[in-house]
Design a protein around this nucleic acid. Sequence first.
DNA 1: AGTATTTTTGCAATCGATTGCACATTTAAA
DNA 2: TTTAAATGTGCAATCGATTGCAAAAATACT
Lengths: 339, 339
Amino acid sequence: MKKHPEITIHHLAEVLKISASTVSRALSDNKRISEKTRKKVQEKALEMGYRPNVLAANLRSKRSMTIGVVVPRIDRHFFSSAISGIEDYAWTKGFNVIISQSNDLLFKEANCVRTLFNNRVDGIIISISMQTNEDKHLKLFSDKNIPILFFDRYCPTIESDRILVDDYNSGYKITRHLIERGCKRIAHIAGPELLNIYKNRKEGYLKALEEVEILPVKEYLEVTGLTKEEGKLAFSRLMSLPNPPDGVFCGNDTTALSALEYCQDHKLRVPQDVALVGFSDEPFSAVVTPSLSTVKQPGYEMGYLAAQKIIDRIQNNSVTIPFEQIVLPTELIIRNSSK
Amino acid sequence: MKKHPEITIHHLAEVLKISASTVSRALSDNKRISEKTRKKVQEKALEMGYRPNVLAANLRSKRSMTIGVVVPRIDRHFFSSAISGIEDYAWTKGFNVIISQSNDLLFKEANCVRTLFNNRVDGIIISISMQTNEDKHLKLFSDKNIPILFFDRYCPTIESDRILVDDYNSGYKITRHLIERGCKRIAHIAGPELLNIYKNRKEGYLKALEEVEILPVKEYLEVTGLTKEEGKLAFSRLMSLPNPPDGVFCGNDTTALSALEYCQDHKLRVPQDVALVGFSDEPFSAVVTPSLSTVKQPGYEMGYLAAQKIIDRIQNNSVTIPFEQIVLPTELIIRNSSK
DNA sequence: AGTATTTTTGCAATCGATTGCACATTTAAA
DNA sequence: TTTAAATGTGCAATCGATTGCAAAAATACT
C-alpha cells in the first residue's frame, strides 16, 4: 500500500470515489454540494488528517492571506502594543501578520517594503521612519492598488487610509495645561518636522501660546531626533539660557525622562523649578519619580482598528470606498512632574 | 498589444524566444545556463519589472521561507526584544517572520501553533504559556520533523533546540547578593512551578540559602502568577507575617514594582526595611525610585541566536545534528532597591 | 570529417487547490 | 408524461515556478 505522507484533496477524492473538485467544494462549504457528500468529505478529511495546502490555495486565488507590518522598532512599547492589536484582529480573520522593522532608516524601510511586496502581502500597515522623505518605495503598493494603511506616522503624499491620533490637540492640551498651572516660559523639544505628528504637536503648542498671547520664543523651540542623548542635550541647552523655561513639553517620554535625569543631576526641582510633560505614556512614565505627565496614545486600539480597516479593504477591494483618515483622541495624563 | 499586468517567466520566455525553464534557471543562477543567456534574461527581467511569484516557487519547492513565532505577549519588553532579534536575523536570510501571541493561555497557544502548522511554516520559535502543561499541540511539529525551538520558557517533554538563560544561577546570584548585603530573612515570590524557568530560579534561591545554612521558611515562599495584582497580594502577605522578611527576591520586575508601591503606601523604606530584587530588567526598572535591582536577560541576543539556530536547522534539515540547549548567562544589576 | 564529450536548452510533468462550464440528476410545474 | 427549473457533480484548465530527462548545440579529440 502506498504511503501518503501528506494528504491532498486528490487522495480524499480517490478514497471517496468522487472528484477532487467536489472535495474542494465540500471542504469550503460551497452551497452547490449536497449536505450528504459535504459531511462525508469533511469526516473523511478529519479522519485522514488532511490539511489544506495554503500555498497552493493562495497561488490559485492570488491572495496570500497575509498582511505586512512595518514599524520603526518592534521593541518600543507603542509599536508593540499596536502590533499586538493588529495581530489579535488579523488572527480572527485568518490573516497572518508578517512584521519587519525599519530602525527608523529609510533604506531599511524601503527594503522591508520591497520584500513584503515581493512576498505578495495582501496589504501593508506602516508607520514610517524618521528619515522617510520620499514615497517611491510606497508607490509600489499604491500603484498596484494593494491596500496600504498608515498608522501614527504617515506619508502625506500617498492617498490612503490612515489611523492617527490627534497630535495637534494633544500638543495644544499639554501646553494649555502648563499655562494653567502657571508656567510662563514654556519650551518644546520637538521631533523632526518631516513627520507630521511632530509638526502637529508643535503647532498645537504654538496655538496654545497664541491663545493666551504669549509670544513664542525662538530659543524655546528645540528640534531633535528625540533620542535620550539628543533630548538631554536639548534640555541642557534650554536650561542654560539666561532665562530658562519653567515648563517644557517634551516630544516624547524618552526625552522627558532624560530631562528628568538632568534635573536630578543639577538639583532642579520638578515641577517647582521646571514642569515637564512627555508624550506616549511609556510603561516607565507612571513609575518614575516624579511620575511623568504625558499623553496616552491608544496603541493597541489603533492597531486593532488598522487591522479591521485594511482587512475590510482587502476583502472589498473596490476602489469605490473612499479613503478614510481616522483621528483618535488622546488622553492627557497629569502626574507629578507638572502638578 | 497585450497588457501584462504581472510579468511571469513565461512572458519573459516569450519575449526572449527561449523556454520558460531556461528563464527560470537563468534567474536562479543555475550553472547549466551560459553566461550570455543568463545576462540577457536577467536584464530583460529587470527591464520588464518581473517579480518572482514566491507563492508558486514555494508550492513547488515545498518550503514557505517563513518561520512562526509564538510568545505569550508581544508587548512585553523581553519578548518584543527577542522578536526584534529574530526578525533582524531572519530578514538577512530571506525568511519571513509570522508572529502570534498566546496571551499565556494554553488553548490560544494551541490555536496559534495549529495555524502556523497549517500555514506550513518551515520552523517555529516558541516561548510557552504559563498554562502549558501538555505538549500535544507541539507534537504536530516534532512528529513531522519540522524544526521547533524553545526560547526562555520551554517544554521539557519535547526534544528540541533550546535557547535559555541561566535561571538557576540567576536565582542563586540574587539570593547571594541579598545575603551579602546583610539580609537575614529572605523571601521569594515565585512563578508557577509548571515553567522550569521559575522552578530553576526558586532552586537557585534555595541553594544559596542552604550554602549559608539558612533554613528556608515555608511562609517566605509565595507562588503566584506574577501579575501586578497577585504580586501585591503576595507581598502584603509576606509583610504581614509576625516576622516579615528583610529581603525579597521577586519573580519578575512587575511584582517587584508592586512590592515597591506597597512599601510606599505603607511607609516602608527600601532597601533599609526590606530590600527588593526583581527579574528581567524592564525599561522601567532603572528609573523607578528607588531604582530596582534586577537580572538582565539578553532578549535581543536570544532572539537573534534562536533565528540563527532554527534557520540553520531548516536549511540542513538532517536529523543527524543533535539537539542543542544553549544557556546564556545573565547579568545581576544591583541598584538602589538592594544597595 | 567523424565521433565522443561537454555544455546549453527545451519538453512536459509536477506542486495542490480553485473554478467556469458542461453534464447529470433530482425536483417542481404544467 | 413531458418540460422546465433547480440542484449536484465532474472535467479540465489554471495559478507560476521548478526539475528530471532528453535533445540539441557547441566543443574537443582522433
